[in-house]
Design a binder for these strands. Structure first.
Length: 594
RNA sequence: GGGGGUGUAGCUCAGUUUGGUUAGAGCGCCUGCCUGUCACGCAGGAGGUCGCCGGUUCGAGCCCGGUCACUCCCGCCA
């Protein structure tokens, strides 16, 4: 028998009554009656109540021990008197009558308690992450994360995927996020980059003939944080398959996701086959390429209405004449909502930097009328037309946004969420997945005044590649796809372009010469000229998946040791200064502007 | 880089609207009492640069300016 424990803290039951046992764990909670002392001893597995009386010489030791000290307790398992059982505890029918105890490790007074599940400031939680992680909720999240990863491994191994590791020190790549750089000692002045994703390596694995690969891959991007985005590093389930079309990837990943979410959550998955929405359609109906499909609200295009003579809404009409568009959100049966409901939304829109959201309700007063601030500008005929376009009814409300296409999309996308939340029409007990497909290969960057890749430059363009019209590059679509669940982008993937000539052409549209492509992507381009299989894959974000399964809004709740928003590790104090000697070895000089 | 929110005891927060005696509560901590608790109870106690700096004022936790920290968002994230 091990010297620390014969049983863990969740194990003992009536079966062990009268046995002498050893258990070890943290002093979770103390209830001191003066001459009788109860403690809850906690380990990873659970909690066991132990009791000691003042005739025991260890009584004062225990009385003086602080919470979270680590104890080893030896004692007899006894049945709790009827009426003193605790049904909440797995071990609640018994307790340990302490004979001896040993303090294995003393705890100082705690900066944050472990007992209780109150909220604490995040900087303290991050600094004392080891205490935070002892708490039930966090402990549970991290266990869930581990189980999710194991499950994914099992499923993919069953399907014939092989797990490989790819380099962490690699080369900096153009396109995409800012790289983390690592100076090279042996090559002064040169730098490695940490991979933003194992993108090129996974393609090289396919070219190396391994057919199906996956990896729980760390990815590094030096970009600013968000609630659902850690600064610095995150994990992807990176996977890639040879000789596949988009549908093959879809069927593997869709099944994996459904099995995973069914296994680890009791929430209902609305669509067993994920609906597919084209990028264009998503932008139209939801204003975003990561729509929350639990939200029933839809955006309608009604710009043309504003060319009608019988609409007198002059501000909008003027804007439309100069190229603005008008889109609308309809909310069902909301005519009796208080004025404050509408005003709040208008106020909110103004806070978003928009000029506001115009609104009115559709009511019947003899004929159909628009009631509300701007309702009077619409004739009955115009309202009938609007009702037709937007599939609206009497009693519904209409919210209108007017502006440049991008602004309207962005505002109405946020407004969809805002209004639906205010109306409480989002079912929080559901997962609603979809594929967003048919992404454009390129987009026009207004700031740089040039054409850039809209997603992954290695994606295969759609259609007959001999017939592609490179004079109209913005019309080229790619075999590029995202999985979205409840408004969160879970993964991004593509069928890759394995044809070097085509790749040069595609890059030239984005302003890269053949030489530049050769320089920047030498490993891969070279490999493509020695026989590359058609291949494709995807990379679901592990952190976000666990976030959804754990029902957390913040990625740090499902990460063991996250950094804060300034990309600092408050516990390890990273990043930190290094010695002059280290810098010298690396041929690095500091030049800090202040 | 920009915008919003927050900052008062170890922790959670009240007090800021309308400036005015010694800044409060709960949890935690310390001391004492308590033999059936499981958020144990009871009594007492310690604990504060009201984030920091400056200004206005007879007087600032409260008003003004600046600054710092944390957080949320925008930009950014192929």
């Amino acid at each position: 028998m091990n010297k620390y424990r014969s049983h863990n803290c969740a194990e003992l039951s009536e079966k062990e009554i009268d046995k002498i046992v050893y258990i070890s764990g943290w002093l979770h909670r103390k209830r001191d009656h003066g001459n009788l002392l109860f403690i809850d001893l906690r380990d990873h597995y659970g909690i066991t109540q132990c009791v000691i009386e003042n005739n025991n010489k260890f009584f004062t030791v225990l009385e003086k021990s602080k919470p979270e000290s680590v104890l080893k307790i030896k004692g007899k398992v006894v049945r709790r008197a009827s009426g003193t059982e605790n049904v909440e505890l797995k071990t609640g029918k018994i307790e340990i009558s302490i004979e001896t105890l040993e303090v294995l490790s003393n705890a100082k007074e705690l900066p944050m308690p472990v007992f209780g599940e109150k909220e604490y400031p995040e900087d303290i939680r991050l600094k004392y992450r080891f205490l935070d992680l002892r708490r039930e909720e966090m402990h549970k999240n991290i266990i869930l994360r581990s189980k999710v990863i194991s499950f994914i491994r099992e499923e993919l191994l069953k399907l014939g995927f092989l797990e490989f590791q790819t380099p962490i020190l690699t080369s900096s790549s153009p396109e995409g996020a800012r790289d983390f750089l690592v100076p090279s000692r042996l090559n002064p002045g040169k730098f490695y980059a940490l991979p933003q994703a194992p993108q090129q390596f996974k393609q090289l694995i396919m070219i190396s003939g391994f057919d199906k690969y996956f990896q729980i891959a760390p990815c590094f991007r030096d970009e600013d944080a968000r609630a659902d985005r850690s600064p610095g590093e995150f994990y992807q389930l990176d996977l890639e398959m040879s000789f596949v079309e988009q549908e093959d990837v879809f069927s593997v990943v869709e099944k994996l996701m459904i099995n995973l979410f069914k296994k680890f959550s009791s929430k209902k998955i609305i669509n067993d086959a994920f609906p597919r929405i084209s990028y264009e359609n998503a932008m139209m109906k939801y204003g975003t390429d990561k729509p929350d499909l639990r939200n029933p609200l839809i955006i309608f295009e009604i710009t043309d209405l504003f060319n009608r003579e019988d609409i007198k809404f002059d501000i909008f009409k003027k804007l439309v004449k100069s190229g603005s568009i008008v889109r609308a959100i309809i909310t069902k049966n909301t005519k009796d909502k208080p004025r404050s409901f509408f005003d709040n939304i208008d106020k909110w829109a103004k806070e978003q930097g928009a000029s506001g959201l115009a609104y009115f309700t559709l009511e019947k007063d003899g004929g159909i009328i628009g009631k509300g601030p701007v309702g009077k500008f619409f004739s009955e005929e115009a309202l009938k037309e609007l009702i037709k376009i937007c599939d609206a009814e009497i009693g519904d409300s209409v919210f209108l946004a007017c502006g440049k296409k991008k602004e309207v999309e962005q505002l109405l996308s946020l407004a969809r969420d805002k209004i639906a939340n205010d109306l409480n029409i989002i079912n929080k007990d559901q997962f609603s997945f979809c594929w967003i497909v048919d992404y454009p290969m390129y987009e026009y960057d207004e700031k740089l005044k040039k054409i850039i890749f809209s997603h992954n430059p290695f994606s295969m363009p759609q259609g007959d590649i001999k017939q592609l019209n490179f004079n109209k590059p913005l019309n080229i679509k790619a075999y590029q796809y995202d999985i979205v669940c409840n408004g969160i982008e879970l993964s991004s993937g593509a069928i890759r372009n394995h044809i070097p000539e085509l790749m040069y052409k595609l890059f030239s549209v984005a302003g890269y010469t053949e030489k530049e492509v050769n320089d920047k992507f030498s490993g891969m381009i070279n490999a493509f000229s020695y026989g590359a299989p058609p291949h494709g894959g995807i990379a679901p974000g592990i952190d976000r998946i666990v976030m959804l399964l754990a029902d957390k809004k913040n990625i740090r709740e499902v990460t063991l040791f996250p950094m804060n928003q300034n990309a600092e590790d408050l516990m390890m104090q990273a990043p930190s200064n290094v010695s002059e000697k280290q810098l010298k070895e690396l041929s690095i000089k500091k030049d800090i502007k202040k």
